[in-house]
Nucleic acid binder design. Structure first.
Lengths: 338, 338
DNA sequence: CTGTTAGCGCATTCAA
DNA sequence: TTGAATGCGCTAACAG
């Protein structure tokens, strides 16, 4: 391994001088800087982040924890975060948060051992890891994604996401304005994100002058322990359509749910959108891969990632006391299912 | 930060003794070991991987490079690799390989700077990064996924994947035995993996006594620069079905292609499977989310990840000279599209 | 079985 | 503007 010492020797200076050009601190004569830079290039030298980290406490590394691996939205989010992190010269560790408690301890230890600078986590369901993370967030820079701050009462946290309440209210208005009268909602229990969207549904419905029919609201837990959201969506559609007075429109809290619902509707002869209109939320690629193509709320994924990274970097620099939450605006994409 | 020294002081021993219980080397009196372990627990001590790494050259960290982020197969593979790596106490860096050359340099530097122990990469298309990686593979433990070794002539590499040639041959036999006579193939140019499956298609077709109709073979590049595989599949189906003598079965090299083809067929009134039968390859969740559900080759993802991790660990331990390639068997899943 | 010593590669005082 | 010295947290000889 080529070290700072090799560079120093080749350039005919001391290690400290080389260190100065690496960190960009102190002032250095132009000619020697050039000599050093040449030496670095010729030797193909790159400073060791390990050694740097051990001295500075910074590793230019963040961890990304994702709970739900089956929801394809998180797949897209993942790559977006990776992209933005790379742009900011941060490398990202991937952690699968669905780990059942057992891995939780291991993960927490790892974050310390590698001296990760910060963590971005996408948890909508509170579990052992979330608690642990929240405890660590006093000292470890941490940003929550997809956790609407208005619904999370814990003080001193930063949450980046979209304004599910108003976004969903917009969907209701759209459906109502274009003729739907019996508008159903499909959600999953205990997911703050979804609860927030549901609140928008309720508020907007009454604002539109509709009565709230509890029979048109489907909420459930993933069934076995880990039913996919897709299947849950199918189940929801089945139950809703089996009612004596079925809905003429279904708002799904996520695209995954919507696509599941769509499959049930298709396979059982319900015409979409003629008979039932259907909307999703997320605008994942999948929403364009079904027939009819899904109308949905497009979350500004890159912007979410960028905003999160920005807050995280400030927390890293200014300390974990700095906090900032953001609710971004989504955009409704009208396609074939409405 | 609580260091090895704090533990030593609390336990009334020297740093070296503590270090010995951490690394498990040397022999230690039971009573002192217990004292030390207690101290570690009470102080909530975890050894710094940075400091360890700087001494031992090992960081218990690997990098995972994925080229194609839009192919959902890689999404599933990603989580599987993360899972297996975690089981083996390795943490994984996520790198997006589709980076257009620009990031290539940055990535290569990073791998050195963090002293990553090894790399798993899923590249089917050769690009700047692949070349760079291959060069590094002499010194950096490296395992290729989804790159059939029989088609990669470069010496001294390890490739883990499924036996696409025989798998696809099996699909052809199945389709032929069950009545299909005009069997088409959809692929993408310059992807070794897919080329290998195509070879199985050809071989099996002639083995079944069918003539090879070049008009039934569709190969193309992703169109703009980065057309999705889904769209490419649609395009392929369109062209194949527009022929005067269209196929009665279509073998798609991947599920993503198949689902794209399926959408075109559905939207244009072709009945699947009555009129055209359709198969995929990968068995991603998506293949169960379409109507009709897709018959496909199920790749043993976890086994692939496990095998890859195993080879990688041996390379890490024994040096990069050790090499081992594996072709695993897939399983055909018969569903509704055939 | 355990303590002492010497670095690993680097950043950061303190002098010059 | 530069160099020498010190130490980050840890492992690995080398002694005892």
């Amino acid at each position: 391994m080529v070290t700072i010492y090799d560079v120093a020797k080749k350039a005919g200076v001391s290690k400290s001088t080389v260190s100065r050009v690496i960190t960009g601190s102190g002032s250095i004569k132009d000619s020697t800087r050039r000599r050093i830079e040449d030496a670095m290039r010729e030797l193909n030298y790159v400073p060791s982040y390990l050694a740097q980290g051990i001295r500075t406490g910074r590793t230019k590394t963040i961890a990304l924890m994702v709970e739900e691996t089956s929801n394809l939205y998180y797949n897209e989010l993942l790559y977006s975060v990776e992209k933005i992190a790379t742009e900011n010269d941060y490398m990202v560790f991937l952690l699968n948060g669905s780990a059942n408690g057992d891995h939780a301890q291991k993960y927490m230890a790892w974050l310390q051992q590698r001296q990760v600078d910060g963590v971005i986590c996408c948890f909508y369901r509170d579990n052992a890891i979330t608690d642990e993370l929240y405890r660590m967030s006093k000292t470890l820079p941490l940003v929550f994604l997809d956790n609407p701050q208005p619904l999370d009462s814990r003080p001193g946290i930063s949450c980046i996401g979209t304004d599910g309440l108003n976004d969903t209210a917009e969907i209701v208005r759209f459906l109502h304005n274009t003729g739907s009268r019996r508008i159903a909602f499909i959600g999953i229990n205990d997911i703050r994100n979804i609860t927030y969207r549901y609140l928008g549904y309720r508020a907007s419905l009454t604002a539109c002058g509709c009565d709230l029919d509890e029979g048109l609201v489907f909420f459930d837990d993933p069934q076995p322990p880990n039913e996919s959201h897709f299947t849950l969506g199918s189940r929801a559609a089945q139950i809703l359509m089996a009612r004596p007075d079925p809905p003429d429109a279904i708002i799904s809290a996520t695209d995954m749910l919507a696509v599941g619902a769509l499959q049930y509707l298709q396979e059982n002869g319900y015409r979409v959108p003629e008979q039932v209109r259907l909307t999703g939320y997320d605008n994942i690629i999948l929403s364009t891969m079904c027939t009819p193509k899904l109308s949905t709320m497009s979350q500004p994924i890159d912007q979410i990632a960028r905003e999160a990274m920005q807050v995280l970097i400030r927390k890293i620099q200014e300390g974990s006391d700095y906090n900032h939450s953001v609710l971004l605006k989504s955009e409704f994409i009208q396609r074939e299912s409405t």
